[in-house]
């Protein structure tokens, strides 16, 4: 720092006045000031300003007589506050003196540890359990609510439900042990007996086909799964709306489920649907049996014409 111009020296003058510069810089500034009248003048001006400010403020402090009274009042308030805090702490210590969580060291420093250590862990466990329950509930609700097709959602447990929306896990839907007799009674039908055709009944449950309520009766013939669906007036209306051109007792390939289906009407205001990998002969045999076993007055209605 051998060469400094006046501007650079001016920047250092404040620190020079407060003796905040290192020895080398102090010497540099001092040497410059010896040779430069303008910088020396600047230093004097700054010194005068500083002295004036100091004098003015210190004089103002002397005339402010309220300072002593205010500081005494503050000290008094602070002491009271601190004393009351100490007393409160001591009372807390006395009140909990039998508590094992209070530890007193040799230096008479009281450490309070009133909260049990496992509280944080139990809080985490509680939150984890709550989160798990919430996730399970949400999953069940989602599966139940959106189970419009059993293919993707419940294919593992309901291979026979490609055509309908089996609600197997809901209280309002079908599950193992649901009284079958009650379901048949509610729909005012008898269970079709197809044993003579080698088709054996396995189970039944309430379901929905295109949002219309049906009763799904599951049968099997060897490895082949056969389903009978029974629907009342509401189902008829919905189904008629969906399949306007369907003809009773004719086999159709249901595009969505890739199942062969046939629609049969035994009465004017109800509907039977047979679904499965069927032949025309099997359909005819089943419809004949249905006509025998189902309610009387079987007729091919003009439902689908």
């Amino acid at each position: 720092m051998n060469l400094l111009n006046c501007h650079q020296i001016n920047e250092l003058l404040s620190a020079y006045l407060e003796n905040e510069l290192d020895t080398t810089t102090t010497l540099t500034v001092a040497n410059h000031l010896e040779k430069c009248l303008s910088c020396e003048k600047e230093l004097k001006a700054l010194t005068n300003v500083s002295n004036l400010v100091k004098t003015v403020i210190r004089e103002a402090d002397k005339t402010d007589l309220s300072l002593v009274a205010r500081s005494n009042k503050i000290n008094s308030l602070v002491k009271d506050e601190i004393t009351s805090k100490i007393k409160a702490t001591e009372n807390l210590v006395l009140a909990s003196s039998n508590d094992n969580s209070i530890k007193t060291s040799q230096n008479n420093i009281v450490k309070l540890n009133l909260r049990p250590k496992w509280s944080a862990l139990s809080k985490k466990i509680f939150l984890s359990l709550a989160a798990s329950v919430a996730i399970i509930c949400l999953s069940l609700f989602t599966i139940t609510y959106y189970a419009t097709s059993t293919g993707p959602l419940l294919s593992g447990v309901a291979r026979n439900h490609q055509f309908c929306s089996a609600i197997e896990i809901s209280n309002i839907g079908w599950h193992k042990g649901y009284p079958k007799e009650r379901l048949l009674q509610a729909n005012n039908i008898n269970l079709p007996k197809l044993d003579t055709l080698g088709v054996h009944f396995s189970d039944l449950h309430p379901c929905k086909v295109y949002k219309a309520p049906f009763l799904h009766m599951m049968y099997s013939k060897g490895d082949k799964q056969i389903s009978l669906y029974y629907g009342s007036q509401e189902a008829v209306n919905k189904f008629q709306e969906k399949f306007k051109t369907i003809t009773p007792n004719e086999l159709y390939l249901h595009q969505e489920s890739n199942l062969q289906i046939a629609a049969i009407s035994t009465q004017k205001n109800n509907l039977w649907i047979v679904a499965g990998d069927l032949t025309k002969e099997e359909i005819n045999a089943i419809t004949s049996e249905l006509a025998i076993n189902s309610l009387s007055n079987t007729e091919e209605s003009k439902l689908f014409h």
Binding site: M1, L4, S38
Partner: peptide, 16 residues
């Protein structure tokens, strides 16, 4: 001291 601003832009280089 608003009148004493004559040294503001003095760029004379002083040698140590």
């Amino acid at each position: 001291c608003p009148d004493n601003e004559d040294n503001e832009d003095n760029e004379n280089i002083a040698t140590a």
